[in-house]
Design a protein around this nucleic acid. Structure first.
Lengths: 156, 156
DNA sequence: TTGAATAGACAATGTGGTTGTCTATCACGC
DNA sequence: GCGTGATAGACAACCACATTGTCTATTCAA
């Protein structure tokens, strides 16, 4: 009750930001200074076997145009390569490069470090409680369009 | 620890999103369908006594140009009015309209409802623990440039 | 073979951010 | 009283994210 309700909602964003910032500080040290928060999520969505632009859009919960742009940026950054799809000359298979796998590995480790830091800071029991509480509270939205979600008006 | 570390960080964003979405669904019902998440924060930054564009930018942690854009949007939406500053003919005083105060009141109530829902869902003790844990974990960044923060590469 | 559905590119727009440039005003020092 | 520097804000250009709409090429089915 000490915290006003709006502060609590803001704390969620603050904690998220803190975690992501910490992660990216570590990623920058590991040779991925240009990695942006959405890169990791997108690469994870591409998967080890690769996927097409449309699939990427569906997995991220965004339009295929947005997915195409994201893929283009990832390709330019050296994280994705394009291959033709054998059976379908329209489609393009997006494939993670070794550099992308390196980023993902570093990202996974970085997330682990963040979680460990929090666990150490809170104590294991309180940390587990936190995770459990968040699991109950959090919606299961796509999370792919976080930036746009903040700006877009709710209706339309 | 059943949850992988990256999931936990995502849960924070998911919970934040859930809270804001719930809030704005309620705001839409209360006559503010066009309110966007950043509106409330900006109006709160303007304050009851009003402020100038530069002050708004400083309070939100963004450039004055960004603040000017935000203020323009808020003005167009009927939430802000511009008044001359008596002593300084360069400056413009941004003032909240009655409609803005209505939005803020509805927003405060909405946040309260969100918190109450969570409190009911988790139980008071677990909810308080959650808030406490978040307080320790969350950084104290500006929070004003959340959308840009996701996309902008770290410094450079 | 003809026509609908699909993959993806391309353009325009909206919202957020940034930096850089410009004018008008203020404040200070000579 | 006038020049100089700082400040408030506007304006333009640009980037990153999203959207919808339109277009071509390819696939697949009737």
């Amino acid at each position: 009750m000490s915290e006003p309700a709006w502060r609590v909602v803001l704390l969620l964003a603050g904690a998220f930001r803190e975690g992501v910032d910490t992660l990216h500080a570590e990623l920058a040290e590991q040779g991925h200074p240009e990695a942006r928060p959405l890169h990791g999520f997108a690469l994870q969505a591409v998967g080890a076997r690769g996927c097409t632009i449309n699939e990427l859009g569906q997995r991220l919960g965004v339009s295929k145009q947005a997915a195409a742009k994201t893929a283009a940026g990832l390709e330019k950054a050296g994280y994705l390569a394009r291959e033709p799809v054998p059976g379908d000359r329209r489609a393009v298979l997006l494939r993670r490069t070794p550099r992308a796998d390196d980023l993902l590995a570093a990202s996974e480790a970085g997330f682990e470090h963040v979680a460990q830091r929090w666990r150490r800071e809170l104590g294991a029991a309180r940390y587990d409680d936190l995770v459990d509480a968040l699991t109950r509270i959090a919606g299961d939205g796509p999370l792919g369009d976080l930036p746009g979600w903040l700006t877009q008006r709710p209706s339309s």
